[in-house]
């Protein structure tokens, strides 16, 4: 029985590995055409990235967008997580559902809504946001906040509020308690939430497609537009870099949440803390 399950699991894991592997192999191919069997390996397409202004600009746009969205998601999401876990609010579940709802909305539809709103805003007030990062930042903020909220709330829930009461009774003010006791104890959740938020923003495609134009074209959109038309291993090279970053982020969140998992409640539920515990959208 266990062997049969293991065999199915092995097939499934192999399927999950196939697509990224194909990109990596093509990125080191010596020529533009794919060869079976390969006649050698070369890093020329990585060097060739320098001559691809669209991909380079996309890379920097995505890095900038991811950094801004993550920062903004932390500023809005961490207080929200605090309110939800420590605020003794009525209707807590409903608020959480509202904050997480953007994750189950179709990305392209949301993008169309934001695009329409930007057009209406420009008509009504003359404030033109087309061609700026603003619509993209707003849209990415919407889908990164849920990751921060869930990760930080899970972390706060697994720490003991009695610790904060003790700090208060020892004479610490509310702010000292917050910054010296509460937030440090949720450190793992904050870091994991920030990593997830950045990764989600960096890789998002559906939401960005209608909002990105000219200088604000993000890397996934630039990759999409290139692979739809040309066979070019340079795209495979830049894609390989993002694959490496994704694996790095996965290892990082495992390192953060792994040790944590063995002593807090997430071990009981068996769900890996960090990105896997959440439900990302496409």
């Amino acid at each position: 029985m266990r062997i049969a399950l293991g065999a199915v699991a092995a097939v499934a894991y192999a399927v999950l590995l196939l697509a990224p592997l194909a990109v990596i192999v093509y990125s080191v191919s010596p020529g533009a055409a794919l060869e079976i069997p390969p006649s050698g390996a070369s890093l020329r397409w990585y060097a060739g990235l320098a001559d691809q202004p669209r991909l380079i600009s996309g890379l920097f746009t995505s890095l900038l967008l991811g950094a801004i969205a993550t920062g903004a998601a932390l500023v809005t999401g961490v207080p929200a997580a605090l309110a939800l876990t420590r605020g003794s609010l009525p209707g807590r579940e409903a608020f959480l559902a509202v904050l997480l709802s953007p994750l189950s909305l179709p990305g392209l539809v949301l993008g169309l809504g934001v695009l329409t709103s930007a057009a209406v805003l420009a008509n009504a007030t003359g404030i033109r946001t087309a061609g700026t990062l603003l619509p993209l930042v707003a849209a990415h903020l919407l889908i990164t906040i849920p990751w921060v909220v869930r990760s930080v709330a899970a972390s706060l829930e697994s720490t003991d509020p009695a610790l904060e009461d003790q700090a208060r009774s020892l004479g610490a003010g509310p702010f000292a308690t917050l910054f010296l006791v509460t937030l440090p104890s949720a450190r793992a959740g904050i870091v994991a939430g920030a990593v997830s938020a950045f990764v989600i923003s960096f890789g998002n495609f559906a939401l960005s497609l209608l909002l990105a134009s000219g200088r604000t074209v993000t890397l996934p959109v630039a990759i999409y537009e290139t692979v739809d038309r040309y066979q070019d291993p340079t795209v495979a090279a830049v894609s390989t870099l993002t694959i490496a970053a994704a694996v790095g982020a996965a290892v990082l969140t495992d390192r953060i949440s792994g040790p944590l998992k063995t002593r807090d409640s997430s071990a009981r539920s068996g769900q890996p803390a960090g990105p896997a515990a959440l439900e990302p959208n496409r």
């Binding site: 495609f205 894609s239 993002t242 896997a276």
Partner: peptide, 28 residues
């Protein structure tokens, strides 16, 4: 867990591109 989570952190465009490289007439 790493094998299951890593693909989730990659852009869907990159993974679709991988399938294009595998399935195309001039692909793998």
């Amino acid at each position: 867990t790493l094998l299951i989570v890593s693909p989730l952190l990659m852009s869907v465009v990159v993974r679709a591109y991988g399938w294009m490289l595998i399935l195309g007439r001039q692909g793998f």
